[in-house]
Design a protein around this nucleic acid. Structure first.
Lengths: 223, 223
DNA sequence: CGGGTTCTTGACTATCTTCAACGAAAGTGG
DNA sequence: CCACTTTCGTTGAAGATAGTCAAGAACCCG
């Protein structure tokens, strides 16, 4: 997941696949903390997230860690470059994944339908990354945080009375490394939103959106 | 072009295409200032840049402009999302382009070889965007500028005695909108590099790298 | 319960942005 | 071709924002 306005997401509901290669997948349960793959690993498979949250990171030459994206249900991750993975990927909260052999994306010998689906996912990925650039481009810390929370709220939030609740399985440091901030600034921005009664922090990893419009307005003020 | 360490770029030298669909292209000359396509346009074709420099931008809801990328020779641009272009694209310096119908990327009825080439270009695009995230993630203004110049120097620089020279066809505002800075900060950072004798600014749109190692060191200090 | 990690908050500093002015370059029309 | 106008780039000063350093609080895990 990039911080984007939710875009048209191709429907990847389970299909009544009758003998087609959408059956050529392996379902996998992974526990929090496990690594799915690492940067420079040979990319054997592409993953579609059924449930759970994953984290895609890259280590920089200077040893800094950049969080590239968070993987949420519906996301397809693990697009290879020159046959290898370009990020580390580990599990933030227990996940269920479907995986497909890479040749369905890159080869012509796989299932055409699956090939097209993976290709479209790759193209959508490009669009979403572009939108994330806009986010990183220029925004105050609080605007970035507001945009981040707003997207999460829309994408994975659950109604809670009149409000909307969702969990934040990643650490403050993860959010910081994702948005180009420091943990302190993330913390301060959350506090600011909380003191403005825009959100409530139920527990460290659970947020309730009290004023979705205000959150959205903050998110868009520079978007 | 994103600000990335130059990666393995698939060879797209002109081929002795004998009747294959690499011939199914249109070569086009475009003048500086012309628009190749605009956001939300129906994406009919994918473009491969032969020469010249293009600019890919997006307008945000708040009216701000984000420069998504600069297109340099060898780059493939115009990847569609849901059949439409996701950015504006205009020409910074007169360019020659080859263009291919979209179906070669997205359809199964086009030329398989071209299909694979465009697909690989899309996957490479994802990797390069990830590397650009690292750039935007956390770096001082001067580090961003140093990284930007360093990549350009390696990619399009021409030897000039012991040094390396290249043109900077985009405005300071373009660089600012690309790196998430203001024009003033871009200007100040360039001045700083110039006063440190790392670069020389031959004319406003021409840079000479005097100390490539120092430039690289600055670029990597947070990368 | 205890120890280590994560999160929050405070004080201070560095950096970038903003506002403003000026100079240089480029485009326009006579 | 030159004068005029406009845009673009540089520089300065002041203010705002985020980073750094440090300490304490909350949380998690065994």
């Amino acid at each position: 997941m990039y911080v984007t306005t939710p875009s048209l997401r191709s429907e990847i509901a389970p299909r009544k696949s009758r003998g087609n290669a959408l059956h050529d997948h392996i379902t996998r349960d992974v526990k929090a903390g496990a690594y799915l793959f690492r940067q420079h690993d040979r990319a054997e498979r592409i993953y579609k997230i059924t449930s759970g949250v994953l984290r895609l990171t890259r280590l920089t030459l200077a040893g800094r860690r950049q969080v590239i994206a968070f993987g949420y249900p519906g996301d397809i991750i693990g697009f290879p470059s020159n046959g290898t993975h370009t990020t580390d990927c580990d599990v933030l909260s227990d996940a269920v994944l479907a995986s497909y052999p890479r040749r369905h994306l890159e080869g012509m010998d796989g299932d055409p339908e699956l090939h097209m689906e993976l290709l479209q996912a790759a193209l959508r990925e490009i669009t979403e990354m572009q939108e994330h650039f806009i986010m990183l481009g220029r925004k105050t810390a609080t605007e970035k945080i507001a945009a981040f929370l707003s997207v999460l709220s829309k994408r994975v939030g659950q109604p809670l009375g009149l409000f909307n609740q969702f969990s934040l399985p990643m650490s403050r440091a993860d959010i910081a490394d994702f948005l180009g901030l420091t943990t302190e600034t993330v913390s301060r921005s959350l506090t600011q939103l909380r003191k403005g009664n825009v959100i409530s922090i139920e527990s460290i990893h659970t947020v309730i959106v009290l004023k979705p419009d205000a959150l959205q307005a903050l998110a868009e003020s520079c978007e």
